[in-house]
Design a protein around this nucleic acid. Structure first.
Length: 859
RNA sequence: GGACGAUUGGCUCAGCGGUAGAGCACUUCCUUGACAUGGAAGGGGUCACUGGUUCGAUCCCAGUAUCGUCCACCA
């Protein structure tokens, strides 16, 4: 046995070479022709502008864990990487660069600008891909995809046409969310609502000498210039007599009707609402119902335009101030509430206040598609883990408005609609060419349109490729709950539509967000953002991965602090040293494992614990319980294996009489490293290949729990041994005996523990030989006795024993009370009663033992 | 206004009808023959509050309070 490990574990020394080894061996490349059952995951495509943040690190750790486990289980695994072209985000990046040179995209024109974006991508895009390699992602790079790739664009065109032909895509004038900075429409979910301090003012319409006057209330006074009506509730007695009459709109000096609509809440404001059809979605609805004119009063930059008043040319917020001032001067204001906190939509990309605006845009008719997406989950065809997230999904899927998919950008999939010279409209499929003289729609599609096709566009759809046949539907989708609506629900919608009702994935696994150590959201302004790359440099990728996995409870956010990762690094070091110890002492994986029944209790015990851990960890990982699986493995490795088994084995190794132990230890490590590999791929690979001399753990078999090697009685007797050892240690500690000081003593153990008795004595620094026992601990068949004549602090020892006695007596009293309780005895399950009886018996034993010890103390 | 969740030791979180758990932090001891990125021993919690169900509630039910997230057309 010549295998050796360096003394210290230096992650940086092993990670890059191992990743290269894996790539060279082609372990991550999927074979669509394989006979093995498939297991496929697509990566949530990061933005091409992005770099790896801690959220990706979590997301990828969980996916890689599943993929690596499935690969070891014999599945043909495909984990497909790629990126999203990220329309607005990417265009913004390039435009900012141009702005720095004092230019805008319009200086270049569409074609030239788009080329510049591609250049930018080639040069600076995709930084995240290299960072994924550092993390160890076992993705199939040969299938790397980009939403703007030719074949993925074909998928976009194909599905657009299909939807259009089935009248599920239409063009219409609607109120949409408009960002006056990005100069594009936004879908509902690209708008963030938060409260801002604004104003709420009462404005009188109608002059003194007019027939009618009415007070309306608004938070956006400047929009009065575009009013087409005033609406009241039909049952509002205050205004009933005015319905159908007209009132004069100040400044614009236009007579507008007073209409009645149920939408108006008589309790709110003045009970009378101005109707600005072109700049408010509710008003638009009412206007449609009542035929109210829709007057656009702002241009695309949010500057007042076309009102025919002196406010034209003012920015919308300047106009607001100016209008209020003017109204006040003219005595047309009633009460003014200021500040008035209310919810206002902001562009999720740049935080500019969104302007609802009447505009001609393209929409996806969502209702029929979303119905199918909801039903797929309701019927159980697609599972959401954890199930608590289902209500959120249904809420959105069942109530989704039509999806505005056109964006006034240049970077993205251009809408494949062409207009003929005589106003004809034609939607072109991927291989169709527009007739001479026709022009294409100027807009591009929402970025999420192409991401929604990701589970099948990356597999070659619309062609019926081998990849598609083998790997669709994907097995699971792992992502943060924060993009459940943006992305997941839309993949469901399009997947079911495009693939004839076949779901894009079988299970949706939602994890939480990574927050700072106090559970606060990470944000640049708070300065609590952490960089996963920095952590990988400092502690190794395995440490980062392990702490992320260990913190990931289903659907729940996790707090992360640098100390946690340091702790995980310590764990990695522990494993390293344990394996080093094993190798130094001749642990081996060669030859068959000794017959279980021939082993002593300690060897049986560690095998038993190993097999229990394997069974449980496997079950936890299969149910996406990453935190619990990690925790379980951690405690088995550290507590059972390192703190007990290795410590107890030292003496046997020292004496060179440990053939069975060498083989058992080799086996336990072998299996443990396999079990941990999905979560900590680098260190396990290094240790395992050194231990076994085999090629790679990536393609090794996943451990299977051997039920025949689970032995509860061995576990019980080892637990007793541990208890005795702990008792003695506590006693020594209480007596102030130094850890290194030897005391005369011995352990008396049953035969099945005999090979380890000396090891236990070694742990306790017991010196076997001639002595008169002066202290004794006895649990079950295990007895520890030692001689401390002259060195015992009698008073302290008596106090300690008395305390223990009191505790034991109190416990006995509770147990006795329970057994004497008729209600309890009538209803408690048998197992509970047995447990309490055992507890009572143990109390009796303890009390007797403690009393004996007290009696043996010198007076 | 709805939906979901949270409230457990200093911090972050598990647990969940039957004597309160982990990691980190803390105290004391130990450079012992893999590991001081370590080992041993220990301190610390009326499980948010109030009622109810039960032989028994941290756990189930109802309500209260505080916090978080998501959704929603409060002009």
């Amino acid at each position: 046995m010549t295998r050796e490990l360096p003394t210290g574990f230096v992650p940086a020394d092993i990670e890059a070479p191992l990743y290269k080894k894996w790539l060279d061996a082609g372990y991550f490349t999927a074979d669509a022709k394989s006979e093995k059952p498939p297991f496929a995951i697509v990566i949530p495509p990061p933005n091409v502008t992005g770099s790896l943040h801690i959220g990706h690190a979590l997301d990828h750790t969980l996916q890689d864990t599943l993929v690596r486990m499935k690969r070891m289980k014999g599945f043909e695994t495909l984990w497909l990487p790629g990126m999203d072209h990220a329309g607005i985000a990417t265009q913004n990046v390039v435009e900012r660069q141009l702005a720095a040179q004092g230019k805008s995209r319009h200086d270049f024109g569409r074609e030239e600008f788009v080329k510049k974006v591609w250049d930018w991508k080639a040069e600076s895009g995709g930084a995240i891909l290299g960072q994924m390699k550092r993390l160890g992602d076992s993705v199939d790079w040969s299938r790397e995809a980009f939403t703007m790739d030719a074949n993925l664009s074909r998928a976009v065109l194909t599905i657009f046409k299909r939807l259009y032909d089935q009248e599920l895509i239409y063009r219409a004038e609607r109120i949409i969310n408009w960002c006056p900075r990005c100069l594009t429409a936004l879908s509902d979910i690209e708008v963030d609502h938060h409260d801002v301090d604004g104003e709420f003012v009462q404005i009188r319409y109608g002059r003194d000498d007019d027939e009618n006057q009415i007070f309306i209330a608004t938070t956006r006074p400047e929009t009065m210039l575009g009013d087409g009506a005033v609406a009241v509730n039909p049952n509002d007695d205050r205004y009933k007599h005015m319905i159908g009459k007209t009132v004069r709109l100040p400044y614009v000096d236009r007579m507008i009707p007073i209409i009645a609509d149920e939408l108006v809440d008589p309790e709110f404001g003045t009970g009378a609402v101005k109707v600005t059809a072109a700049h408010d979605p509710n008003d638009f609805e009412m206007a449609v119902r009542h035929g109210v004119p829709m007057i656009i009063i702002m241009n695309e930059h949010g500057v007042m335009e076309g009102t025919g008043t002196k406010f034209d040319g003012m920015d919308r917020f300047d106009a607001r101030r100016a209008v209020v001032e003017e109204l006040r001067k003219d005595g047309l204001l009633g009460w003014e509430k200021r500040p008035y906190s209310h919810s206002v939509g902001h562009c999720s990309r740049c935080q500019t206040i969104v302007e609802p605006r009447l505009s001609l845009q393209w929409f996806v008719k969502v209702a029929p598609l979303a119905k199918a997406a909801g039903d797929a989950v309701r019927s159980g065809k697609v599972k959401i883990s954890p199930t608590e997230m289902e209500p959120r999904y249904f809420e959105w899927v069942d109530g989704m408005h039509d999806w505005c998919i056109s964006r006034q950008l240049w970077w993205g999939h251009r809408i494949p609609v062409w207009y003929g010279p005589d106003g004809e409209v034609k939607v072109l499929g991927p291989d169709e060419v527009a007739p001479e003289g026709w022009t294409q729609d100027e807009d591009v599609l929402d970025t999420w349109f192409s991401s929604a096709l990701w589970p099948f566009s990356t597999l070659g759809w619309p062609d019926n490729t081998d990849d598609l046949k083998k790997f669709y539907p994907n097995s699971v989708l792992v992502t943060g709950y924060d993009i459940l609506f943006f992305w997941v629900a839309r993949m469901m919608i399009f997947g079911l539509f495009a693939m004839d009702g076949k779901q894009p994935f079988d299970t949706i696994v939602l994890h939480g967000l990574v927050r700072d150590k106090f559970g606060k959201k990470m944000s640049k302004s708070k300065g609590n953002v952490v960089d996963p790359l920095e952590f990988m440099d400092k502690y190794g990728s395995d440490a980062l991965r392990f702490s992320l996995a260990r913190g990931s409870n289903p659907g729940a956010d996790q707090a992360l602090a640098e100390e946690w990762i340091g702790g995980a690094r310590n764990f990695a070091t522990k494993l390293w040293n344990a394996t080093r110890f094993a190798l130094m002492n001749g642990a081996t994986v060669d030859g068959p494992l000794p017959e279980f029944s021939s082993l002593n209790a300690i060897d049986k015990w560690i095998l038993s614990r190993l097999n229990e851990t394997i069974a449980e960890a496997d079950q936890l990982l299969e149910s996406f319980e990453f935190a619990k699986a990690s925790e379980l493995i951690y405690h088995f490795a550290w507590d059972d294996l390192c703190d007990w088994y290795l410590e107890l084995s030292k003496d046997a190794f020292q004496k060179g009489d440990a053939a069975a132990t060498k083989r058992v230890l080799g086996h336990v490590l072998d299996q443990l490293l396999r079990l941990m590999h999905p979560i900590m791929p680098f260190i396990t690979e290094e240790l395992w290949t050194t231990l076994t001399g085999q090629e790679s753990l990536v393609i090794a078999a996943w451990p299977v729990s051997d039920a025949k090697s689970i032995d509860k009685s061995a576990e019980k007797i080892v637990a007793q041994l541990q208890e005795v050892i702990t008792e003695v240690r506590r006693f020594r500690n209480d007596q102030g005996i130094k850890t290194s000081q030897k005391i005369p003593g011995r352990l008396v153990v049953p035969a099945e523990l005999a090979p380890y008795a000396a090891g236990a004595e070694f742990l306790l620094k017991m010196e076997n030989g001639e002595f008169t026992p002066s202290a004794k601990f006895e649990i079950g068949a295990i007895r520890a006795e030692f001689d401390l004549t002259g060195s015992i602090d009698v008073a302290a020892e008596r106090a300690r024993l008395n305390k223990d006695l009191a505790t034991a007596e109190k416990d006995r009293a509770t147990a006795t009370a329970k057994l004497g309780n008729e209600g309890f005895m009538a209803k408690a399950p048998e197992s509970v009663v047995v447990e309490i009886r055992e507890r009572l018996a143990k109390c009796d034993q303890d009390i007797e033992r403690i009393k004996a010890q007290l009696a043996s103390l010198p007076a």
